[in-house]
Design a protein around this nucleic acid. Structure first.
Length: 271
DNA sequence: ACATTGACCTGGGAGC
DNA sequence: TGCTCCCAGGTCAATG
């Protein structure tokens, strides 16, 4: 579910509520995520202060006194801040209870998410090591994409969803950005010129920034930390609009499958 | 090195 | 109502 805007929305929701508070205890209801959560995590985290909440790619990084909790929301994960008395539901896999009666609760029906602890003894940073550039930084520009795309025959949509190239762009925002840039998602990455890559990087930044501003996209599972949905789904131009009119030309939006994922585009104005 | 495919899970909606 | 099938916002390992 969550791409960069949803993860960033989550981060911005949590930080002001919980930064500076002390984790009093952790309740693990289900440890079977993409990797098993060690039962010892509950003891490790006890009485540590949460100093800051960061983000790298689609990972949330919770900085505690003696290490970092790394959380990935997978396809269907979400985090909420609640009062501790709130009863848990079926897919609420863990709670971290803080001072002031506040709980950080992780929910993930499909269990593709990830929760792991890193510190000096146990650095699982390799997960983050191979990640590409952050899309909302100056280093992400037309030159960068052009250089990384040299000789690449993969279609440009898969290319911009490749987290080793640029992070945070998932299936929804890839289609949206390619539409904005007027680029056909089936085009080979290596056959796009600099000017169009400049347009594409600007389109990606614009789509992601607009989605963050709207609190993310809520099609099914996603909601913000307060449980309220984002509203960027109202501003989607192509995603999930098969058969509908293009918002820019007289064309009709098509759905195709590229590298196993649904892809939406307008054949008339994307080349 | 690169491109493609399937596996991991559960739930919701469409169609019969 | 209930069954089957297909689909879903992500990653990772295995295959040519």
């Amino acid at each position: 579910m969550p791409e960069l805007p949803e993860v960033e929305t989550t981060r911005r929701g949590i930080e002001p509520l919980l930064a500076g508070k002390v984790a009093r205890n952790m309740l693990l209801r289900c440890t079977k995520l993409r990797r098993p959560i060690p039962r010892s995590l509950a003891n490790v985290i006890q009485n540590q202060r949460l100093q800051a909440v960061g983000r790298r790619a689609k990972y949330l990084l919770f900085d505690f006194d003696r290490g970092q909790l790394l959380v990935h929301l997978g396809m269907s994960g979400s985090l909420r801040v609640l009062n501790q008395a709130k009863p848990a539901h079926k897919h609420d896999h863990w709670d971290i209870n803080f001072d002031d009666n506040k709980t950080l609760r992780f929910t993930d029906p499909r269990r593709f998410g990830l929760t792991l602890w890193r510190d000096q003894n146990d650095d699982q940073g390799s997960l983050l090591d191979h990640l590409g550039v952050e899309p909302l930084t100056a280093g992400f520009n037309g030159q960068y994409l052009l250089q990384r795309a040299r000789c690449r025959r993969v279609n440009v949509k898969s290319f911009i969803m490749d987290q080793r190239i640029v992070v945070g762009v998932g299936n929804i925002y890839a289609s949206e950005a390619l539409w904005l840039a007027g680029i056909n998602p089936k085009r080979s990455a290596g056959r796009i010129a600099l000017a169009r890559y400049e347009k594409l990087t600007k389109a990606i930044k614009k789509v992601l920034n607009n989605a963050i501003e709207a609190g993310g996209t809520s099609l099914r599972d996603f909601s913000g930390v307060d449980g309220k949905p984002g509203y960027f789904q109202l501003r989607l131009r192509v995603y999930d609009r098969e058969g509908k009119a293009c918002r820019r030309c007289a064309g009709t939006i098509r759905r195709i499958v590229t590298t196993g994922r649904s892809t939406y585009y307008c054949p008339q104005c994307q080349h």
